[in-house]
Amino acid sequence: MVLCDVLKLIDGKLHTCEEEVDIYIKSACGADLMSDVMAFSKENALLLTGLVNPQVIRTAEMMDIKVVIFVRGKKPTDAMCELAEEKGIVLASSDLSMFTCCGLLYEAGIVGTGN
């Protein structure tokens, strides 16, 4: 599924890299604990999180995660957007909860490969 369809599903808003809406998303992971993303996430292009700090962007960079969606109405700070733009990482946000976002994406065929 392409990113713009993902965003439509969860009523998401883009904060950076608006030109990247055609990124193909096959799998995703959802976590507030970056330690777990580092240790358990496999080839996921999308991270859903409720955690808002610059290390979320760093973690995404190290893990080859191309898109980070902040759930529960959280918004990235200007400094985070700047860092993400520099790294070419898409930041988006949704007012929906983590559970609802994950459920909607899973139902639409996005899988989780972290195990």
Binding site: L33, M34, S35, D36, M38, A39, L51, N53, Q55, V56
Partner: peptide
């Protein structure tokens, strides 16, 4: 609270 310190770091380095 910053999302780290879960005690996975060293074993993850080794892995």
């Amino acid at each position: 609270e910053m999302g780290f310190g879960a005690g996975m770091g060293l074993s993850n380095i080794k892995k």
